[in-house]
Design a protein around this nucleic acid. Structure first.
Lengths: 237, 237
DNA sequence: CTCGCAAAAATCGTATGCAATCTTTTCTGA
DNA sequence: TCAGAAAAGATTGCATACGATTTTTGCGAG
């Protein structure tokens, strides 16, 4: 897949930082897998697509590289990250460390507004699971990630929230790459259980459920080195 | 304090990314508090000091801004971060969440080489505490942070390691801003106790000690809003 | 002397140009 | 026909230029 095959909505809020807007668009495209891992993101091409100079495109790519969604090689350019099984494990190890704590923090801060937001989120998640079509899986992965991001925002620690944004984005990549697909509805019900615990202020239970949930997500992955990521990478595919 | 008052060693490894080298230098300067919080870091000035163009200086500042050590305002420039008490609490809340887990991971991966590295690190730490002089406190804070970074590197998860690098850097800023100074030797002995637990493979104990250690560090801070950070910020001080 | 406003200076955001490096193609000789 | 070298092309790294925005300075009115 070539980046040029994609079209991107125009960046409207020209007032704000354009590089940031481009980063967001690219991140969505990567997480949604409209841009395949390994795809080259050349500064010139990105610049042309978004109608900005290479300077701005470069800044956007640098941001994505900090988030681990893009890998840059000196004098060679930027590529959509192609996480190895090892990196995938690291992502989930990090989540296992952080998210149970986030669940505990969130449990102590739930308001009726938050509950409503979670219910809306879970409704949408359910809709995507029921849906069929080429984009169903994408939307499902995205919605599932949004649940975790919502939780992080409720927890009220911007630093941890940013960490989680990075981890969720990278998880989406990993799931798209190594996911086996079966567990989705199971994940949905786990989200509902977590919400229930949160509503009841049962932080320990929310934390424990979250830990299991992460384990389940990772267990659904096939992290055996399929045909070797080195080969895939070598082929620039 | 003006950035121009400082001199920086020349960036030698010109082969590698120069922006990264500049970022490292600036980060050291910020963490060591040679650059006071709130100090303006203009692109032109940084570029001149390091003998690069604004393009490169800008990239370095962008990196620091991602790490939370620098705050950038559109059309105004970059400033050394001036964390509020609220942000300080968030930094330590994040560390409480992450570092005990890191200690557990590290406990399971300790090799004799690691032990030796830790001993060397603690020796240096002790030397700085004994030392007196204008730079003693700086070196002490730095060495204390290095202990935690060493632990993170032993844990073997690059993602968590990066998170810790950010958190330790921001902690150093916070300690420099809000620290009361008394607890230093106490922190040193806590480090030694943690190392002992790590050597014995007693991960639970290492984890618990780490949690207490972080609590102690935070307890040593005076996080009452001293004269209002808004004022300090308004005065660009 | 202070205040307000306009001009000047400084600084940032962005585009673009050139040299260096990497990749691909073409050419040559076995 | 194929391996290796040389040239052409593409892409990045970096510096610089210019308009836009912000900050400072200068100056006259009150």
């Amino acid at each position: 897949m070539n980046i040029a095959d994609q079209t991107f909505p125009a960046v409207d809020n020209a007032n704000e930082d354009r590089a940031q807007a481009i980063r967001d668009q690219l991140r969505d495209a990567i997480v949604d897998r409209r841009l395949a891992p390994g795809t080259k993101l050349s500064e010139g091409e990105v610049g042309t697509l978004f109608d900005v100079s290479r300077t701005v495109a470069r800044a956007a790519l640098q941001m994505l590289s900090f988030e681990g969604l893009v890998r840059t090689e000196r004098n060679r350019g930027a590529f959509v990250a192609n996480p190895s099984p090892e990196e995938a494990r690291q992502v989930f190890a990090s989540r296992r460390l952080i998210e149970p704590g986030i669940a505990i923090a969130a449990a102590g801060r739930m308001t009726p507004d938050h509950v409503a937001a979670f219910k809306a989120q879970l409704d949408e998640e359910g809709r995507f699971i029921a849906e069929r079509g080429p984009n169903a899986r994408r939307s499902e992965i995205k919605a599932s990630g949004d649940f975790h991001l919502l939780l992080a925002s409720v927890a009220g620690n911007p630093i941890l929230q940013r960490f989680m944004e990075e981890l969720v984005a990278r998880s989406s990549l990993v799931i798209a790459l190594y996911g086996r697909s079966g567990v989705s509805s199971c994940g949905h019900s786990e989200h509902m259980n977590i919400l229930e615990a949160l509503e009841n202020g049962n932080s320990d239970r929310a934390s424990a459920l979250m830990l299991h949930h992460i384990d389940h997500i990772e267990a659904d992955l096939d992290l055996r080195i399929r045909s070797g990521p080195a080969l895939r990478q070598a082929l620039e595919f």
